[in-house]
Write a protein that binds this DNA or RNA. Structure first.
Lengths: 90, 90
DNA sequence: ATTATACATCAAAATATTTTGATGTATCAA
DNA sequence: TTGATACATCAAAATATTTTGATGTATAAT
């Protein structure tokens, strides 16, 4: 959840929406530097949000559906638990 | 989304799961200082994640379902758009 | 009126995150 | 086997966020 906290990371996540991308793809599409992208990729990977698959010199990254699903479940629990109880005074 | 990025904010959000809370509630439950809580509340409010309702000296905060729903939809779109296309070489 | 409570806001300090540029490693092509 | 490409990693600098403690405002109780 905390790994969603950077706008560039959100951008990278959005790029992964359409499928696998390598760092070089992200470079072309975003004009961010290579090390900068690798840094953000690392954060996303450590958060368990993406998985990687190496193929020769390239590493393809993609979103982990399970992780995203768990986040959705958490959000659902926030709203569903007990529908907006009102507090009564003091 | 970016407002989810602080562990204390997540804690506050979790407290709101059960319904409305005031700053004083959060103080009792978390041992965070008042100004610290107000600061995080402000971030959450600016992100449109919570709404407030004043009642005398107290301000009750609660989660905005619509906002949470939109986030869920975004996450859904990430996985559903085109189910994990594989990239083919170069 | 005075005091206490609940909360907001502010500036400075503390802390954490991000960016940059350099360097390292592995794979592949020539 | 040399050079190029794709990416990771690192330390230092830049930047952003968070915390603290003080002060301010509104409401309510005495």
């Amino acid at each position: 959840m905390v790994s969603f906290s950077d706008p560039f990371r959100l951008e990278i996540i959005d790029l992964m929406m359409e499928g696998e991308v390598c760092v070089c793809d992200i470079m072309k599409l975003t004009k961010l530097s290579q090390s900068r992208i690798s840094y953000h990729i690392k954060i996303l990977k450590e958060a368990g949000l993406i998985s990687d698959r190496q193929e020769g010199r390239w590493v393809y990254y993609s979103l982990k559906k399970e992780a995203l699903f768990l986040i959705k479940e958490w959000i659902t629990s926030l709203t569903d638990y007990s529908s907006n109880k009102k507090r009564c005074c003091e």
